[in-house]
Simulated assay, not measured.
Amino acid sequence: MMKDPVFSLHTPTGVQNILTADRPTHTRQRRLLSHAFSEKALREQEAIIQRYVKRLMEQLALRSGEGPQDVVRWFNFTTYDLIRDLSFGEQFGCLENGEYDPFVQSIKDISKELTMIQMFKYYELLGLRRFFMPKAIAGTRAQNMQRVIQTVDRRVKSKTNRKDFLHYILAAMETDKGMSRAEMDVNTFSLSIAGSESSATLLCGFVFYTLTHPTVYQKLVTEVREAFQSEDQIVMANVHHLTYLNAVLQECLRVYPPVAVTLPRVVPEGGEVIDGGYVPAGTTVGVNHFACYHDQRNFYRPNEFLPERWMPGAEDETSLFSHDQRNCLQPFSLGPRNCLGKNLAWAEIRLITVHLIYLFDMELDRSVGDRWTERQKVFGFWDKPPLLVHLMPKHKTTM
């Protein structure tokens, strides 16, 4: 089933990118971008990823004596700086300066603008949007598109051999299967948002849910600190096998999916049979992540944070979780349009969470309470309030 054109997120310039493209265009673009997100490329980029992870830890340690830190900001600084460096080979300085770059600062407004445009399209009122779109968010995508074009210009002119994401695209531009410059711009624009906001959101969910569940937090501390004798041992090859950490992260993705909305498709001509029932052509269909993951038909005690449902043995007939429909958890989507950056996301999330648990004792500030997620709204992404955390260094970070 093709993407529903009513809800398709058109790019600021109207050129198709990997998120909005028709099938042939998507296949061509994904083939080019897949090299940048391969396991081989990821291993080559580990030193860059580690540099940003360690700089985050240094900043948190340096500022820990100043009082509780808003980790929403610090995670956004880190994931954004990282994806932009991996894309362009430039350092943007959010993490270094502790301040938002104009691009990342406007992501919240971009999400709101996109959501409102979808609603105007659905009700066939696009011509009236200028009368109803709040001035604070109108045009934010176009402004950020210009920032991206300027950044891509600098990267193209640099003539570097560094194997960042654009290296693989530029290498194919002279062929008939390459990307046009306009396609390069819109794909870079989307990767800069999707590659930073979703990872930062999961990291925030990890901190909130572990710190509001002391037993979970203590189990994590035990697993991580027994697994590593020094910070230098915390590398990509050593973090993927931490059983309880993986269970906690899976449960965070279930209760607080970074993409909590429906990604709509449209039923083609002739209609389709879905779950035993006929659905006529032209019907908008999709799976809402949040609703699916919180349905008691899919998960035992769905509104509770229970990482044990992802532990070995949880599928046994005697387990409380034996009837959980684990395969319905698809936070990165699935099929030919699944998340291209899944491997990168897992690498940076595991490295950051393990470093945090190893280097700091953490405690939520009293002002946060236990209802942080309940105060949030969704505009494509979660609109997150501050998440204040007290951090007490346990080990000195290594350079």
Rank of each mutant, 00 (worst) to 15 (best):
Q143D: 13
N144A: 10
N144G: 14
M145D: 10
Q146M: 13
Q146N: 13
Q146V: 13
V148N: 06
V148C: 03
I149G: 05
I149A: 12
I149R: 10
I149F: 02
I149T: 09
Q150V: 02
T151G: 03
T151S: 02
T151W: 04
V152W: 01
R154G: 02
R155L: 02
V156M: 01
K157Q: 06
K157G: 05
S158W: 01
S158Y: 02
K159Y: 07
K159Q: 13
T160R: 11
T160I: 04
T160A: 11
N161V: 09
N161K: 11
R162Y: 13
K163G: 04
K163N: 06
D164P: 11
D164I: 04
F165A: 13
L166C: 11
H167T: 02
H167C: 03
Y168V: 03
Y168R: 01
Y168S: 09
I169Y: 05
I169E: 02
I169M: 04
I169R: 03
I169D: 01
L170F: 15
A171T: 08
A171G: 04
A171M: 08
A172G: 10
A172Y: 06
A172N: 08
A172P: 10
M173E: 07
E174I: 00
E174F: 00
D176C: 10
D176H: 14
D176R: 14
D176L: 12
K177L: 10
K177G: 10
K177D: 13
K177W: 12
K177V: 07
K177T: 11
G178F: 00
G178A: 03
G178Y: 06
G178K: 03
G178P: 00
M179K: 01
S180C: 03
S180N: 05
R181G: 11
R181L: 07
R181A: 09
A182D: 13
A182E: 12
E183F: 04
M184P: 08
M184Q: 12
D185Q: 14
D185C: 14
D185V: 07
V186Y: 01
V186N: 05
V186Q: 03
N187D: 11
S190W: 13
S190I: 15
S190F: 14
L191D: 15
L191F: 14
L191S: 06
S192T: 15
S192P: 12
S192F: 01
I193Y: 09
A194H: 11
G195N: 02
G195M: 03
G195E: 07
S196R: 00
S196G: 12
E197S: 15
E197Q: 15
E197N: 09
E197R: 12
S198D: 15
S198V: 02
